Amino acid sequence: MLSTDHAQVERWRKRRTQLAAATPDQRRELLADTARQTRRSVVRMIRTAGQGHIGGDFSVADILTTLFSYTLRVDPAAPSARGTDRFILSKGHCAASLYSTLADAGYFPVRALETFMRPLSELNGHPNRTKIPGVETNTGPLGHGLPVAVGQAMGARLTGSDTRVFVVLGDGELQEGSNWEALMAASHFRLDNLVIIVDRNRLQQGARTEDTNGLEPLEARLRAFGCEVRRVDGHDFDALIEAFRPAGENRPVAVIADTVKGKGVSFMEDRVEWHHKVPTPEQTDQALKELA
């Protein structure tokens, strides 16, 4: 398993302290800069590896930044500590953004990102909990993350912990029936310590979600399954922070984060081919310029 980078943890803690004391404008600037660095890192990782899911990595980057830089009660030096919050990236194919976010917090050294998807690397194409600190469960097969998150939220309830559990789903992933079974259980057990975040970029591999298997009216469906639903711009840090607040009602929270696939790079935005495409050297240079 990769080891903690304690120097980076201290830098991350310092930034968290700055964010807590910042004005709203300063906070937005700090979070935007962190998310921009995540996207730049992802571009390099996928270009070097020759494979990856850059479009979804970019759509979820602002969500991950908000969670790990501001919302989550976590300790990268002690990932399994009792009472800390839990996070699951159910859309595990977007591991590059998660790895970059975890490295930025010091869960493991930033230099390890250079090994992304190389033979025998701990940083393979989908997160592996036995190799990477900060990863709660292996994900990749879609529809698995939410059931695990429901189990973790129930476990926290049973042990009297104030742990909150956050899980990010792809919108295309909601076509998996296991998610709706898990939602019924979460509602039945009134898991108000569970936050379900849908990365609603409206594109999946090969097509738009609504053309493949329509999800709308998504708000009404999630509400019918017993969730307290909050719909926000998934690239608005203030809106995300507000959406991730504790439940106002005795039931799970479902955040629909409206995002743009490929967000941040003009020729990638809202283009289905960037679900699973590797930028050329010229496209890499252009993307890094736009993210400068």
Rank of each mutant, 00 (worst) to 15 (best):
L2F: 13
T4Q: 11
K14V: 15
R16Q: 14
Q18T: 15
T23W: 05
A32D: 08
D33V: 13
T34S: 14
T34N: 09
R36T: 12
R36A: 02
R36D: 10
T38Y: 13
R39F: 01
V42C: 11
V43C: 15
V43P: 02
F58N: 07
S59R: 01
L64I: 01
T66M: 09
Y70F: 11
T71C: 15
R73T: 02
D75R: 15
D75C: 00
P76H: 02
R82P: 06
G83T: 04
F87A: 07
S90F: 08
K91G: 00
A95I: 09
A96V: 05
S97Q: 08
L102C: 07
G106Q: 09
Y107K: 09
A112D: 15
M117I: 06
M117Q: 15
R118H: 12
P119I: 12
L120V: 11
L120Y: 13
N124T: 15
G125V: 11
H126N: 11
R129N: 06
K131H: 13
G134H: 03
G134F: 06
N138L: 05
N138R: 07
G140W: 00
A149R: 11
A149W: 09
V150Y: 12
G151A: 07
Q152C: 13
M154T: 15
M154N: 06
G155H: 04
A156S: 04
R157H: 14
T159F: 14
V167T: 03
V168Y: 08
G170M: 01
D171G: 06
G172P: 05
L174I: 03
L174S: 00
L174E: 00
L174N: 01
S178W: 10
W180G: 02
M184H: 09
A185S: 12
A185T: 11
S187R: 06
H188Y: 12
H188N: 04
N193I: 14
I197N: 07
D199T: 01
R200K: 13
Q205C: 06
G206M: 02
R208K: 07
E210N: 05
P217K: 09
G226L: 14
R231Y: 12
V232T: 05
F237E: 08
A239G: 03
P246W: 02
R251G: 01
R251S: 03
V255I: 07
V255S: 01
D258T: 06
T259L: 14
K261L: 14
M268H: 06
E269A: 03
H276T: 11
V278Y: 03
P281C: 00
E282L: 10
Q283R: 04
Q286G: 04
Q286L: 10
A287W: 00
L288V: 00
K289R: 14
E290S: 02
